[in-house]
Each structure stands twice: as C-alpha cells, then as structure tokens.
Write a protein that binds this DNA or RNA. Structure first.
Length: 376
DNA sequence: CGCTCCCGCCAATTC
DNA sequence: GAATTGGCGGGAGCG
C-alpha cells in the first residue's frame, strides 16, 4: 500500500495549487543548492529532497541550465554554477540574438531562433549552455526538431525577446506569437503560452522577471529584471519604478523571493557570498565595475538600489515585528525600499531578517520539514 | 469565465 | 530493453 503516497499526513482539503507551483519548487531547489559547498546535483536526490516527481525537476533544471546556473555533467548529474554565471549567459544570448538579427530593436523583429543551423553567425561563443542549443553536432533534422521545442531553447529565446528589443513589458501572448514565428495554430499557441508560464514562474521566483500589469490595457505582462548586458539604457527610472508603481503587489504575495537583486551593476555593488557569510560593499563610478570574485561560487550582485527592511502601513516605526505567520502577511507588511547609503548595515540587517523570517514561515507552514532545512 | 499552469501520459533519447 | 529525458495538452484551481 505504502507505495506512491507520501507518508506526509496532509489533509486533502488543504491542497493548494500554489504550493506546488514551479516557482516555489524553484525557490526550494535554490535554497537547497545555492549554498556553500554544493557543486554537484543529483536529480534523484533533488526529487527526494523536494518531495516532487522527477518530471518536475527536469523542468527546473532545464530552465536553470539555460541561464547558466547549472550544467549537465552526466546522466542524473548536474554541476552547480551559481547565479554568478547568469550575466555571462545572458551576454551570450545577447550576442546570439544580435547576429541572428542584427537590426533588432523593433518590437516585431526579435532575434528568435527557429532553426539554428541557418541563422548561426560566426559567433565563437563557447559556453556549454549555449552550445547545447546552438550546436547540433551533425544530427539530422528530425532530431533537431525535438530540440527546437525544448524548454531550454524556449527559455533562451524568451530572454532574447527582452534583452534584444526595447520593449520593457512583454505579455506572454506577445512572446508566444513572436516565438512561434509564422505558425498560427491556436493549439500551438496555447501550448507555447503554457510553457512560457512555466518559465515565467521560475524566473519570477529568481527575481529575473517581474510580473506586472500593462498601464493601460491592464494586461498581465512581464519585465526582465535580470542583467541586460551591454550599455542597456533605460535603467533605473524606466526599469523599476519602485515606490511608485507597485503593480506587482499581488505577485509578491504569491511567491517568495530568494534573492532580491538588481543585475545592472552600476554604482554600488554588494556581493553576497555563500548564503550570508560575508557581505562586501564596493563602490564605483562607471558601469565598468568589476565585481571582485574572491569567493567565487555563489554570489549575488546588487545594483544601485539595495533592498532595505522597512515597514509601511503607517506603523509606529518600530521594526520589531513578531514572527510572520505566512508569506502573504510578510509580503503585505514589508516592502523593499531602496536607498544608496549605509548599504552595508542595511543589507546586513536585511539578510538576517529575511533569513529568520524565511525559516519561521517555513516552519509555520509545515510543522516540520525535511531534516535538510536546518543547516542554513 | 478566462487566465493560470499542475500533472502525468507516453514518445524520444540515452545508457 | 530498461532507464532517463522531456514534449505536450487535458483539465482543474483560482481570481
């Protein structure tokens, strides 16, 4: 009898679809592996630790791999690269997008890859994650077909949409249409959108994407928060209207964010090594900031705006909030505020508070978790 | 009721 | 031939 059913005694009526989303799964996955000492990831292990089917791990892993966070080493084995690999991965994508379609800039001409064999420029970018999708070492056409539809490739093309066009907000419909090329099959469209939802969810949980609503149409759209590479303009003022436009409010309530980060390393860079072991702050004038990588592995890069703990809701100004009971409340009560000074202190507080809240909430949510969680 | 997107069937690939 | 990967879309949850 005790075969497929988990031993976890949970009331069926408490089933929540949200808890099972790819987004939270991704957060959990990251929490599990984005820390000191991790460099190898086994799919079986991951599935067990996270209590999900293997199938779901493939989804996460494929998406993460497409932005360089992971690399497939062998069957069942992946190598952890970390968030620090993202900028480079994105830069590669930008290059690809560029020589696929050098004149991008319009909203209608994305550097979408449909058939790499044709539109592959002499880009000698040699990185595993891009190679996996751009190279098809002498395989036949039918074999490529499957790859062309892979989640990984789709993810990369999706990113290209953001980084190679000057569109700030893109709806999934628009993205799907663009990524489908000339196909006008409603079924294909729906399938594509489904996949984009998957991708968007994990990226949102990584803070690479932000869900918003289009100002006028009110149509759900996404904004790329990850590194845009290059001297991508439209920085602060246009990109994130923190404090002014809080349209992603409801989205904040949905998923927990593991790392708040701004990928445009401009003025100030705060790198967090490991989990929260050491925090370094450094300043620089121009955008040629070279982030020190003394402690390679995992480091988060924060940009000009550093999240600080703050309580709005006209509270008395005291930060002694008791343990938050759930993420809804947490997201409601606290909202990141951004400032430029005293980054060290603020950030330090931020990290610690966040960590403890996270643990608290986690405990509250599930009376007990896997024996894994207390090593944080 | 339309938007989301979980779930798992089953085909393609790899071992 | 078994195991691993992962495309795909039905249909249920949710606002």
């Amino acid at each position: 009898m005790a075969s497929i059913n988990d031993s976890e005694t949970k009331i069926p009526s408490l089933y929540s679809r949200k808890e099972k989303s790819l987004g939270v799964l991704c957060s959990n996955f990251l929490r599990l592996y984005n820390k000191e000492g991790v460099e190898s990831i086994g799919l079986d292990n991951a599935a067990n630790q996270l209590g999900v089917e293997r199938r779901r791990i493939y989804d996460i892993v494929n998406i993460l791999e497409s932005v360089g966070v992971l690399t497939r080493r062998a069957k069942n084995q992946y190598t952890w690269k970390g968030f620090s690999a993202i900028p480079h991965a994105v830069e590669e994508l930008r290059k690809q997008a560029f020589n696929e379609n050098p004149r991008v800039s319009g909203f209608c001409s994305f550097g979408t890859v449909v058939n790499e064999n044709d539109c592959r420029g002499p880009s000698n970018s040699n990185s595993s994650y891009t190679d996996k999708y751009t190279k098809s070492s002498g395989s036949s056409k039918s074999e490529n077909n499957r790859k062309e539809k892979s989640l990984g490739l789709l993810t990369q093309n999706f990113i290209k949409l953001f980084i190679s066009s000057n569109a700030d907000l893109i709806s999934l419909d628009t993205a799907a249409t663009a990524l489908l090329g000339d196909v006008h099959d409603p079924t294909a469209m729906r399938t594509k959108v489904r996949r984009l939802y998957d991708i968007a969810n994990v990226f949102s949980s990584m803070n690479l994407l932000e869900k918003t609503r289009h100002p006028e149409s009110g149509k759900p759209s996404f904004r790329w928060l990850g590194p845009k590479t290059k001297s991508q303009t439209l920085d602060t003022n246009k990109r994130r209207a923190f404090g002014t436009d809080i349209t992603n409010h409801e989205d904040l309530k949905r998923k927990h964010v593991d790392s708040l980060s701004d990928w445009s390393s401009k003025d100030v860079t705060v790198a967090m090594h490991g989990n929260i072991d050491c925090v370094k702050v450094e300043y620089s004038e121009n955008n040629t900031t070279q982030q020190q990588s003394s402690c390679n592995s995992k480091e988060f890069v924060f940009g000009p705006f550093t999240p600080a703990i703050t309580q709005r809701v006209g509270s008395s100004g005291n930060k002694k909030l008791k343990q938050v009971q759930d993420w809804e409340n947490l997201a409601d009560t606290y909202r990141p505020q951004y400032c430029n000074k005293a980054l060290g202190d603020i950030f330090g507080h931020y990290v610690e508070a966040w960590k403890s809240w996270y643990d608290e909430a986690d405990e509250k949510k599930t009376g007990h978790r896997s024996p894994e969680e207390d090593e944080d």
